[in-house]
Write a protein that binds this DNA or RNA. Structure first.
Lengths: 197, 197
DNA sequence: GTCTATAAGCTGATAGAC
DNA sequence: GTCTATCAGCTTATAGAC
């Protein structure tokens, strides 16, 4: 079992890297097989289809993401603290698994046509619900503005945060936690100079 | 000439819609041909290759975008006014041509491999340069914060603005200009409630 | 668990009739 | 300018030897 599991994991890892770099549709099973040192036919001993590989990458990814969001929601935090925690959690996951993050962000049209899309959709609904619950709570207690639709704010911050996976590269002098802090500060306080500057 | 031009335009429009919806790699020349009511072989009377269609869509799109950005830069505006104008111009273009916008935002890995990528890259450099010049000017004159890297702020606002094309749908009660105003307000003033609320 | 060999179908693109 | 017919190559996936 152990060697089979590790071979499966190797395939998932290599596939995710290729899918992220050149897109799922443009990646062939021959490329994946070559990357792990086998021929394409042998891949089908480990996975029933190419789509099954995509599905497992996305499903595993969303499970990790949801576990992290749920943990944030158990903490005793203010609305602002929660929003900052969601940003930090998201960016840490993007840093830890950039390939899966890119696949999930860039290949929704491919994912939507997978046979097991239902489970993905359920997870996506919970992810979105988490953000909206935090934004709604802050709006209700006066922390956040009421003149901007929560749905609009959610989409702005979601896209800015998740697409950081396209450009952010871990760097000793600019850590992911620093990026998260900057991100939270821009979205909550704004980029305009403070009055006391 | 006129009928040939309009046929070319039909093909470009149908291709852009398909490319935006299902991705370039997953769209076949047979689908494009069927959409405009011809057989796939006939397409090659109008374009030498599928990639030539992609290239023309992206090149035309960037030409329109650059013309709009250049016009903004001729206006007499403050740094904040310029940034707002860039956001408005971008969102209006995304509204007017959502398919090309989505292709440019989602298919960079495909575009990067096109033979005529040089021209695209040159335009992309000018686009980024415009945003960074406006941000830099506002930073120098004290309008914008100095404790956050301009490059970080640029990427956050770029991704939030351009990915609106994925979710924004024109609506009488929420116009693109209103979205632009909300976007500018969130990024410059922040989503935290104002003190005088 | 991997390889060989191959099926069955789709892909972008071409040549020539009309 | 479009259609017919087709090519050569590539795709995912399968069956059976080792």
């Amino acid at each position: 079992m152990t060697s089979q599991e590790s071979r499966r994991t190797e395939i998932l890892r290599a596939s995710a890297a290729l899918f992220a770099r050149q897109g799922v549709a443009s990646t062939t099973v021959r490329q994946i097989a070559a990357e792990v040192g086998m021929l394409s036919g042998s891949l089908f001993h480990h996975f029933p289809s190419k789509d099954a590989i995509v599905n497992e990458i996305v499903t595993d990814y969303l499970a990790v993401l949801l576990r992290s969001y749920r943990e944030v929601m158990t903490r005793d935090l203010s609305a602002r603290g929660r929003l900052e925690a969601l940003i930090t959690a998201s960016l840490r996951i993007a840093e830890a698994d950039p390939h899966s993050t890119m696949i999930y962000q860039n290949e929704m049209s491919y994912i939507r046509d997978l046979p097991q899309y239902e489970a993905v959709r359920d997870a996506a609904v919970e992810v979105q619900g988490t953000w909206l619950a935090v934004i709604g709570a802050g709006r209700d207690d006066g922390t956040f503005r009421k003149d901007i639709e929560p749905g609009v704010f959610y989409r702005l911050i979601r896209d800015a945060v998740w697409l950081a996976v396209r450009w952010y590269r871990p760097d000793g002098s600019y850590t992911v936690d620093r990026l998260a802090a900057d991100c939270a500060s821009v979205f909550l306080d704004g980029y305009a100079a403070f009055d006391d500057d």
